[in-house]
Amino acid sequence: MKITTGLNPYGLTYYLGLQGAGTPRHNPNGAGLEGFIRLTQELGGKAIELWEGWLKDMSDAELASLRARLDDLGWKRVLSSGLQHGDMDLLVRCAKALDAKFIRVALTPILCGDRAAAGPRWHELIASVNQKLEAAVPKLEAAGVVLLIENHQDFTSRELVGFCEEYGPHVRIVFDMANTFPVAESPLDFARVIAPYVRHCHVKDYRAVIEPDGFRLVRCPSGDGCVPHKEMFDILAKHNDEMIACIEIGALDDRHVKLYTPEWWHGYAPKQAEDLAACLLALQRNRFEPGEEWRTPWQRNADHELIEYELGQYRKSAANLKAIGLM
């Protein structure tokens, strides 16, 4: 399988000026799209994921200029938004203008697999996802664009496959390779289920903090945590001839998955003990030891460390992927 590797912006939110907007902790001198392009070039990326917020106010001429620039660089491109808040008409227009074949979306705002946090709204969110996907498909078909739905810590592998089968070939999956744990699935089990439908990967990683009520997932360079990227790409290669893969680092806040509490399981189908055991066993690799500092600079209010922290994790990720032939 040919893998074209690049960068995703969401692990660089402070450096780029996206984190804490409108608050005293915002970085007013964020590097923005230009800084993101420079970093992608520095690390030797050949693909780029473009946040909707950078594109929404661009004129046709500005989009044409950006397309020409990306063409000159020889980069593949993916647009990025959310299904609940994104403007599908805008995204399709930008995708056509930029010659982007894929639009990535998160389906819901749920994190940490915590469907119980939504209460009765969980079923409303499912209904909204179906409504929005149904409305989007004719627009995607007309534009020749594929919508990539992400496992964004909310839906299981089989649920994502269900959406793909329901809405056809213009709905496929972007695989966040570290987001299997928040829905209590191991990375390899998740990969086996969704592999035929994956068109793009977020090469992300986590280190786990074991807690009495479950575990925390803490960002780290891709390749330094518990995610077996090489083995997962081997599974994907059985169903795909080529793949776009973008390095992504997790959020500046940890993700606390409280799956040892009964309420966390609200909305989930029954699970085999062997499958849950595989998830919990996979978490043990490179985990934090008791007493080891796991908080990010953002959580420690050490904002002066954030830019080098974010950039350092991306640079280390690129080095790790190059070492195993994935970049």
Score class of each variant (00 low, 15 high):
E308G: 08
F163T: 08
L83I: 11
L43H: 07
W264G: 02
E150L: 02
N130Q: 13
A118F: 01
K76R: 15
V171R: 01
D205V: 03
E231K: 13
G162M: 04
K101E: 15
Y14D: 03
R199F: 14
G32L: 10
K101G: 05
R69K: 12
H239D: 12
D189L: 07
E274M: 02
Q313R: 14
D224Y: 07
G32Y: 05
L125I: 04
A118W: 05
L18T: 08
A302L: 05
K76V: 04
L98K: 09
N8C: 13
C201M: 14
V171M: 11
F155G: 02
L90Q: 12
G30Y: 04
R295W: 05
R285S: 09
D176E: 08
G74S: 09
D205Q: 00
R199V: 10
G168M: 07
T108L: 06
A277W: 13
L311P: 05
P262A: 12
Q84Y: 15
I3M: 01
E248Y: 04
A136W: 03
V171K: 04
A106E: 06
Y15V: 11
C164G: 06
E308I: 01
R115Y: 01
H256L: 12
V174I: 15
C220P: 01
L7I: 05
K46M: 04
R199Q: 13
N29M: 11
M232L: 15
F190H: 11
G225E: 07
E124A: 07
L160F: 04
L306D: 07
L252G: 14
L236M: 07
N240E: 11
A68D: 13
A278S: 12
Y314T: 08
T180K: 01
Y314C: 01
V92L: 03
G250Y: 07
G162T: 12
L90Y: 09
A127M: 04
G267H: 05
K258V: 12
H200K: 08
R77M: 10
V137E: 05
A191T: 10
Q284N: 11
A97W: 03
L70E: 09
D176I: 02
E62M: 10
R315Y: 03
D114R: 10
A269F: 07
H256N: 13
S80P: 02
L12A: 04
A251R: 11
A47T: 09
N151W: 00
P221K: 00
P182I: 00
V257N: 07
K230W: 11
W264H: 03
V257R: 08
A195M: 03
L321K: 09
L326T: 10
R216A: 14
F155C: 08
D72Q: 15
